[in-house]
């Protein structure tokens, strides 16, 4: 377990969180190298199936980051993402995904230190949870 390095997929929206991630790079805010970014145009573009696909393909954690409510470039796409997240969480728990493995965050374009901090904290949390094992695999391995 001590060698376990979580792999995390991050869906970042083009207008806010992706810019924050870029700015975190420009500002050289150190981050653990566990997060893999996929650019979407809006947090509302993230189909729940993408999140499930990510876990099914071997991700240990998934994060979706969008603009703060009220600031969405497409007016309220982030609100729709929020609404979807409730049902998605329930679905994920059916699939044995612990609550802490999926995060929805609001990060504005100017909040690059926040982005870096969020990434680092999320990676630590997921590392503590250990690797994600789908239910069948868990049963096969006899893990509780």
């Amino acid at each position: 377990m001590t060698d376990f390095e979580p792999r995390i997929i991050a869906f970042l929206c083009n207008w806010c969180s992706y810019v924050a991630a870029d700015a975190a790079g420009v500002g050289r805010f150190a981050q653990q190298a566990n997060v893999r970014v996929i650019r979407v145009f809006c947090s509302g573009m993230v189909d729940p199936s993408y999140v499930i696909k990510a876990f099914a393909s071997g991700a240990d954690g998934v994060m979706v980051a969008g603009c703060h409510p009220g600031d969405c470039h497409y007016l309220a796409g982030n609100i729709k993402a929020l609404r979807r997240s409730f049902l998605l969480r329930n679905l994920l728990s059916e699939l044995g995904v612990e609550k802490k493995r999926f995060r929805l965050a609001w990060i504005a374009a100017s909040e690059s230190p926040l982005y870096a901090q969020f990434v680092n904290e999320f990676v630590d949390e997921v590392r503590e949870l250990g690797p994600y094992l789908p239910p069948k695999t868990k049963a096969a391995k006899g893990v509780a």
């Binding site: 979407v40 145009f41 509302g44 573009m45 470039h73 497409y74 796409g77 729709k80 993402a81 979807r84």
Partner: peptide, 10 residues
């Protein structure tokens, strides 16, 4: 259409 993808995701 502005391409936000909300409809696609839904």
């Amino acid at each position: 259409c502005q391409g936000c993808g909300t409809c696609a995701a839904a």
